[in-house]
Design a protein around this nucleic acid. Sequence first.
DNA 1: CGGAATCCATATCGATACTG
DNA 2: CAGTATCGATATGGATTCCG
Lengths: 132, 132
Amino acid sequence: MTARDDEAAPTRQHDPCRTREVLDIVGDKWSLLVVRTLQEGPRRFTELKRAIDGISQRMLTVTLRSLERDGILTRTVRNVMPPHVSYELTPMGRTLQEATAPLLEWSHAYLPHIDAARAEYDTRTGSPTGRS
Amino acid sequence: MTARDDEAAPTRQHDPCRTREVLDIVGDKWSLLVVRTLQEGPRRFTELKRAIDGISQRMLTVTLRSLERDGILTRTVRNVMPPHVSYELTPMGRTLQEATAPLLEWSHAYLPHIDAARAEYDTRTGSPTGRS
DNA sequence: CGGAATCCATATCGATACTG
DNA sequence: CAGTATCGATATGGATTCCG
């Protein structure tokens, strides 16, 4: 349930709930990829679909709708034949892109390290990968 | 200049897979919350459970195991009665915490704006989200 | 105290088919 | 071209119970 009554928040140390909500926005499988692709400028539906490898039509639509609803991007329809729909980051969307940039850079830097850590863990604990 | 002539606006993909993988690490429901709580120092299991409101025992265990496997945190067991298990960020875990800090700050700043954007979108489209 | 194991509800996602 | 609708597989997460 999404209870929107946060006026009774105790303001203790930091607010635990809000931190989680940001993942409801960009924590899904494709949102960050869409935001990152749109960072370079407006793109059409099929352009996005081509740019984001592996995404299905359905998930692209769902992701775009969600981001549009959250005010991260805008959807502009030109009613011609064939249809022309363009997506573009809002100012808020650009601030999101900037806020996520460090995380994307981190992933670049540390994913190999994580692969190594996983392998080491699996070896140590005798997990499926290593086997005996 | 341009060796290629027809590369007007290609909408290329940078590297699609790696960007996604970071979400397999911190894109779940609780990982960022755990990392953020451990930012303040080592914590025991029950301390984490109390600090992260709403998390179940199962999900805390699962999340901690995953982060341990990825080398984000360490698990230290003191074999006494009652058992004493302490979790602590690794150096790599701290770099992750720093990389996600901007995103957490962003959520702090923009979540109210997003709530407004959602309400406006739902009103505009007559969406059934909030029900009547 | 700090889990592991099981059961089950829901959320998420992909594939496919159809539409204006 | 840019969707929508439906279906089914799988992932995720909560509640509960048990155990050293």
